[in-house]
Write a protein that binds this DNA or RNA. Structure first.
Lengths: 146, 146
DNA sequence: GCTTGACCTAAACCAAAGTTTAGATTGTAT
DNA sequence: ATACAATCTAAACTTTGGTTTAGGTCAAGC
């Protein structure tokens, strides 16, 4: 497979693929005699991991580190395993943060739904917290502490 | 409250707070006669939203758009409500992506745990998919389709 | 042999989200 | 009055993750 086909399969632009190659994320990609990159399934699998790590917030330089470990062989198995443990933690933290954001978003939805019904923000803005519906007050308290 | 105290309360650096102010995220912050910013609880509440929107992936320019709507009054209630609906969708999509990443991470944890036990990556690399444990094969199939 | 679309590199460019720097001002405490 | 920490601005700088541009090659079909 050539770079154009890989681009279509992964959704990454051709220039991004070349950028990743240049920065060491795609290690020992074959080349034709003329210098054209020849990708195989192993490269697609590497890209799957790269995309996974990238979308879960890992930096290019850290992904390169991992790829370097992969090339280095069995002596780095432990490092790679620990990286995946760490990345699991990172992802779970991100999900927690997103769920917390979601609570504030939900509260604001109620706030603006109320304002919309009233035709004005005034009433809901001046409303006493104790007069919020129970579930909304709970959201408010969870998102407005400390 | 002055900028240093707000910095401590929000965890944002002083320069970031000034950057946000400059880019219109903190609208009509009071100033002392000498020009020093005086923050109040309303500003802290605004920062709560700013942080929530930022950590859930919204760009500074989009957050500014929202703040501009807030300043514009009741005519923009609908736009603001819709923004919160849209942001809920965005967050849920992000969580989905993270959960998908988590599956590949889990698969790789098993892969490297096995390699670690064996002392080499060789066996597990060459292993037939049908010989994966059931739960792991499921993870593999969920993350290696299309 | 020639054309043509896909590919190549290096280097410049870009946007976002800040951070740093330099030099000036404020305002509180002694 | 003076010292001092905290604040101010404008402008330059930084990092990350690419994209764009310019000027070539490659290789398949006619």
């Amino acid at each position: 497979m050539q770079i154009g086909e890989i681009s279509k399969k992964t959704g990454l632009s051709i220039s991004t693929l070349r950028y990743y190659d240049k920065h060491g994320l795609l290690q020992n990609i074959d080349r034709s005699n003329g210098g054209i990159r020849k990708f195989d399934d192993k490269d697609l699998e590497a890209l799957r991991i790269i995309l996974c790590l990238k979308t879960s917030g890992m930096k290019i330089s850290e992904i390169k580190q991992f790829m370097d470990w992969c090339s280095k062989g069995d002596t780095t198995i432990d490092k790679r395993l620990n990286m995946f443990y760490q990345q699991e933690k990172n992802i779970n933290e991100q999900i927690d943060i997103l769920n917390k954001s979601l609570k504030l978003i939900k509260f604001k939805q109620w706030y603006y739904e109320t304002a919309k019904r009233d035709g004005t923000e005034k009433n809901v803005k001046d409303m006493n917290i104790d007069d919020y519906p129970d579930d909304i007050r709970k959201l408010y308290e969870e998102t407005h502490t400390n």
